[in-house]
């Protein structure tokens, strides 16, 4: 569903991502671990076609993101670390707006239904987003993915700054999306959440994918040890 082929990005001669090969299938959560500057966000930005790769390509549903940017974006939902919505619109209005950009014209009942599936309290749906916590905004993002039946979810540090309960709520939403057949790429620093939520875990350092692990095959402490070893190398 989501594939990168020798994906490389250089900024002024500095390598940000180097020869990245990823293949994430439907119903899989791939957690990309790495320190700041490891190339996780650059990878996601190339998948979003914010800037083109220096070489290599990325495919979503078999389509190149550089050649078919709008078509590939129809199949994905992106949730950044701080999901910025329009503060003076309500959660429901924000969801309607972003669904509309994909050509989905939804009624109030449908909107409320999607927000409810994403775990947003009914009394919060029609309040301005400026009153929302970060966790509530992330739920609107997940509701967008549910509403659009996205094949791919790109998540950039989505649980950073969330309290444990909210983080746990979010993990359950990812499980829901996984069960619906979405291919999920989550860039994160959170080793615990990666082990608990992910199907596979990739470790990046200085733009390179250093290791790839199956989450169920490794313990928390071993994962931490492997991660630290790669960071030192």
């Amino acid at each position: 569903m989501l594939e990168t082929i020798n994906l490389t990005k250089q900024f002024n001669g500095q390598v940000a991502v180097s020869g990245l090969h990823l293949n994430i299938e439907a119903g899989e959560i791939y957690c990309l671990l790495g320190a700041n500057g490891a190339g996780k966000t650059t990878t996601i930005n190339m998948l979003l076609n914010v800037f083109p790769p220096s070489s290599g390509d990325a495919l979503i549903g078999g389509l190149s993101v550089t050649e078919n940017p709008l078509e590939t974006k129809k199949r994905l939902t992106y949730i950044p670390e701080n999901l910025a919505l329009y503060p003076n619109l309500t959660g429901a209005e924000n969801l309607r707006f972003f669904c509309g950009l994909s050509g989905l014209q939804l009624g109030v009942t449908e909107i409320e239904g999607h927000l409810k599936k994403a775990g947003l309290q009914p009394e919060a749906m029609h309040k301005r987003v400026e009153t929302y916590s970060k966790g509530m905004r992330q739920k609107v993002g997940v509701a967008l993915a549910i509403a659009r039946s996205s094949d791919v979810l790109l998540l950039d540090e989505p649980t950073s700054g969330l309290d444990p309960a909210a983080s746990n709520d979010f993990a359950r939403l990812l499980e829901l999306m996984k069960d619906r057949g979405a291919a999920i790429l989550m860039a994160t620093h959170d080793l615990f959440r990666a082990k608990e939520t992910g199907t596979r875990i990739g470790i990046m350092n200085r733009g390179k994918l250093m290791d790839e692990l199956v989450a169920s095959d490794i313990s928390h402490s071993d994962l931490e040890q492997v991660y630290l070893n790669h960071m030192k190398s």
Binding site: L70, L76, T77, Y78, P80, N82, A84, L85, L101
Partner: peptide, 18 residues
């Protein structure tokens, strides 16, 4: 400033058009 540009860029509509 509000950060919504990043989200708009991920939408299947040209950002210039929006």
């Amino acid at each position: 400033e509000g950060g919504t540009l990043a989200l708009l860029q991920s939408q299947p509509v040209s950002i210039q058009k929006i």
